[in-house]
Nucleic acid binder design. Structure first.
Lengths: 335, 335
DNA sequence: TAATTTTAATAAATCGATTTAGTAAACCGA
DNA sequence: TCGGTTTACTAAATCGATTTATTAAAATTA
């Protein structure tokens, strides 16, 4: 079944392609009532569906944006993507989501692919390792927003959470509950949020006059978290509380705790910096530092659409407040 | 910064557009070494990036497929989408994921949008309510695969799990553990998997000589599950085990159980038909009937790509085996 | 009535690639 | 030396829309 094109509609309605195009774009300025009816009828009879590709080629815009998440397994990625999609949808913009899997090479490939597809702009959770490419886009004034991670040296609108401040609040909460031996578990400190959370952890301990014990600070690949954890907890003076720097680190901690049947919070308190979907129904419920993923996603989308409309302003960083949600996993030792 | 086109490259390399096109498509058959080098250099110097849109228009294929999931909140949707994406990626096909939110109108809009964007084919988790539209696509021989749900009357390749059989196995497991008062909690029975799971539930009880108690069969909107559950458990002869028909239903059950501090499995056993990401680390761990989402996604993608290549065969239903993973939430009463 | 403006519709150029048909030079055997 | 083949490359048509410049008729004004 061959495709019905605008030319077919035009022929059937006895008008020119131009007129059909005007009709489809609702430019009725000087269009006869009868012509309108004829075209409408022809479209219906032939079952005509416009070809977006052809339109995009001429108009030089695809009404599509791309999202490149660093790692789709992070809950934040999916929540933010959802928010972006919702916002774009209500502005008649489509979104394409790609997963770079924390791999700068994949990230580069996706950026090139999406640009080849002429998407009107990109929202990226940057790996941070493609500075050249980022700068290139900035130079070309290509609409671009960074999410979750700050890349210094690249002047782009960036949406993040106040990592240091809210990590600090989480640690303070543990200290207020009587903990002094607090460990932090994090993936390698390769990107800004992890570095900032580590800062918050260290500064807050110091501020409370607690010495930093380097053994309590574990920064390692996800796959080796459990091994490190075993060593830590088997050691002398094991920590009484753990701060998991993100959801994937927490998952490892949770698996370990489950396997070893460690009592939480009696033997070990736990807090997590990230959104955990089942935090409120697990046993025990989990204390989290939540990120306002919906607002962040919406903000990023707004910023990008502004840039696309040519109304972007001087690039800056938009830092959102987190939320410390205290649950059972960090209940007071004295309670 | 205006876009660099093939014409610019051609001019710079002192050849025709055609030659540049040949070069880009690696049709080196009769191309001089020097010409090749010239073109390569021109491309690098100008920073030329091909325009996929223009290519798609001429070639009448976008190398892109669409996925329309019924509800992105179902774990199955995301897992299957991931599998599809992975398979497509390795075949140089891009994917666009859309979420119909269980709404036939949105589903219709997405089908039309994606087809306007000239995607080469669609994988749909059908709401089942757009029969006209589905049939239309079939008639036009548009590449199409259904996932998770069977729509009778529409002859399309369909990938599902053996719902009745594996629901049955789950129920049998509960019966073998000494349960007789088994409730089933499900969303409205509007689509085939839910109907088939209910069949499995009923038939297995009957086969074991257990009378069906209509009060034990709750099929209602997600929002009212907890209320119904409260009534059920407060009633005379409350069930000793619950079969949650999918992940969202289970989430409601889990929340309720948490709120009321019901002991699982001592007071109430639970099994779920669906993939639950934290089933193995929750307390208690959760018995699930898992679906092979990865294989299912891969199969669907394979079927679709075959259709796109024009090598599709007579449409049929591909039913996959599930997997009963027994965990703490359904531990034997007698153990 | 002639000049001007408004209304209605169109022809043709364009977007940036791919593809087909064709050309010209070099080569080659008889 | 001639016809035929191979090699290297190109001009022009095409994909399906949008858009600009243009035309022609009808309505209005002077």
């Amino acid at each position: 079944m061959k495709k019905v094109t605008m030319a077919d509609v035009a022929k059937k309605a006895n008008v020119s392609k131009s007129t059909v195009s005007q009709f489809l774009n609702k430019r009725y300025q000087y269009m006869g009532e009868e012509t309108k009816r004829n075209i409408e009828e022809a479209i219906k009879e032939l079952g005509y569906q416009p070809n977006f590709i052809a339109r995009s080629l001429k108009q030089k815009r695809t009404s599509t944006i791309g999202i490149i998440v660093a790692n789709i397994m992070h809950r934040l990625s999916t929540e933010v993507s959802r928010a972006i999609e919702d916002f774009c949808r209500s502005n008649e913009i489509n979104t394409i989501v790609c997963n770079a899997d924390d791999d700068p090479i994949k990230e580069k490939k996706y950026i090139e692919m999406l640009r080849a597809k002429q998407v009107d702009g990109l929202i990226i959770f940057p790996t941070g390792k493609n500075q050249e490419l980022y700068k290139n886009m900035v130079d070309q004034q290509y609409p671009l927003v960074f999410m979750d991670r700050i890349v210094s040296d690249v002047k782009v609108d960036t949406v993040v959470v106040k990592n240091e401040e809210w990590a600090s609040r989480g640690i303070q909460h543990l200290i207020d509950n009587g903990h002094e031996r607090i460990a932090m578990i994090a993936p390698p400190l390769t990107i800004s949020p992890r570095i900032e959370r580590a800062e918050g952890y260290k500064k807050t301990l110091r501020k409370n006059g607690i010495d930093l014990n380097p053994h309590y600070f574990i920064s390692t690949e996800i796959g080796t978290v459990k091994k490190e954890l075993a060593r830590l907890l088997a050691g002398d003076k094991p920590p009484t509380a753990i701060f998991a720097a993100n959801d994937l680190a927490f998952l490892q901690v949770a698996e370990y705790v489950k396997e070893k049947a460690i009592q939480v919070p009696e033997e070990l308190s736990i807090i997590v910096f990230d959104n955990i979907p089942f935090a409120h129904i697990s046993t025990p419920t989990i204390t989290t530092i939540a990120q306002p993923s919906f607002e962040m996603g919406k903000k990023a989308a707004e910023l990008l659409l502004l840039q696309i409309e040519g109304e972007g302003t001087k690039p800056r960083i938009y830092a959102f407040d987190g939320d410390l949600i205290i649950r059972e996993s960090s209940e007071s030792k004295k309670a």
